[in-house]
Design a protein around this nucleic acid. Structure first.
Lengths: 217, 217
DNA sequence: TGACGACGCTACCGATCGGTATCATGATGC
DNA sequence: GCATCATGATACCGATCGGTAGCGTCGTCA
């Protein structure tokens, strides 16, 4: 619906893709607009036609990361949908793989927001919204799981996840997925009522089935 | 042993104190040397006589933070020394208070290291050393506690701590210390052998005594 | 054919970046 | 008194920062 050759990437998308790559790899303040212009092959004037300021471009980058993150989250959940425990394990597996990727440099929301001290900077507000959404999703999950004090468990799992994001390769060297999943199991199962049987949740449909890509222990 | 008025702060110390405050509050790249010079009241020439480059100043800042962090850590441990569980709980209480302070803006090692993509940048190497030291100390603690798979538990607690560091005020609003300590208890106690009594570690000297500043639950 | 819109190119803006050279000042130790 | 040393003040460096103005070009659509 645009013009000319619709097969090629839109100018704004090319800019945003290049800016996102550079911002993530080097930090928002470390990347000047000239660098983005040179790398994307788009004129600087065009950059400022689509994004009025560099901060707008940074905001667009974080919004884009936010959307892609939840898209993948939903995809992971959908693949094992039904048992909330399996959903959580699959999510932790996905995050474990994510932080183990080559070139992984942490959570873009955390990294970029840390570069700006102004509380009203878009990077700060977008991060806040992103992390609040993360907690809400985890809370919904722990409630469905039926843990005692599900909100606390959700916070604790969020801590594990953010910790994994900032682990800078340390976690992946010892098995990120394994560490995350076993921690979550301890947090969810460790608060059960004394005397209650330790394994075997009551609603046991398909229990203890392995999640794709999940280490047995 | 220096000169003139020894009661006043040394020039280098004044510079480093000002630079540390600004670097932490605004980020290393956001703070120019002119700003540090203006804020500290020290001439720019003096800055470069003590710190050859801005990167040197950044490195000195992180080294300073590292030293102060472990100094406080040791102090917290010393106050309750003896029972490793109580040491861990006291440390988590300290961290819970730390991340709840006004103006807390996350772990300086994590924040500043994220601003530099060069793996050889001092911020990157100092952070790596700092986080490795954190893991070693936690590992020593979990081993003394006698947890099953103490290395895994140490990693998991490190994730909680780094997650708390990056929580940006979210954690403190729900009780940082409480969340951290209950998570650690679950991680340490959740792996006990099936059938074994759930509370009451065998070496029970002074067990279940409250740690200063610790919430009952 | 002619208007329009999206884009690229070049040249430029003032401000700030990290870093240096030069010289004056003032206190210390001998 | 004199040499030494740490510091301050000023002026400057080239490079880069985010951002803009002006103009030419090309494809689309009526």
């Amino acid at each position: 619906m645009k013009s000319a050759h619709a097969d090629e990437l839109d100018t704004a998308e090319r800019l945003l893709a290049t800016a996102s790559r550079l911002f993530y790899a080097h930090g928002a303040r470390a990347v000047g607009v000239e660098w983005i212009v040179a790398e994307s092959g788009v004129a600087k004037t065009s950059l400022y036609r689509h994004f009025h300021t560099k901060d707008d471009l940074i905001a667009a980058f974080l919004e884009r990361e936010d959307r892609e993150f939840w898209t993948q989250w939903d995809k992971v959940v959908k693949a094992v949908a039904g048992d909330p425990r399996r959903e959580l394990m699959a999510l932790l597996d996905w995050i474990g793989q994510r932080v183990s990727r080559d070139g992984y440099r942490g959570c873009p929301q955390i990294n970029v927001a840390a570069e700006f001290s102004d509380r009203d900077h878009p990077a700060r507000t977008i991060r806040a919204r992103h992390k609040a959404a993360m907690f809400e999703r985890l809370k919904a999950l722990t409630r469905r799981i039926g843990t005692r004090q599900p909100d606390d468990a959700a916070y604790q799992i969020a801590l594990l996840v953010d910790g994994a994001f900032t682990s800078d390769g340390r976690l992946s060297r010892v098995g990120a997925t394994r560490i995350l999943q076993s921690a979550a199991r301890a947090l969810l199962g460790g608060e059960r009522v004394r005397g209650e049987p330790s394994r075997a949740r009551t609603k046991s449909r398909g229990r203890r089935r392995r999640v794709a890509g999940t280490a047995p222990q």
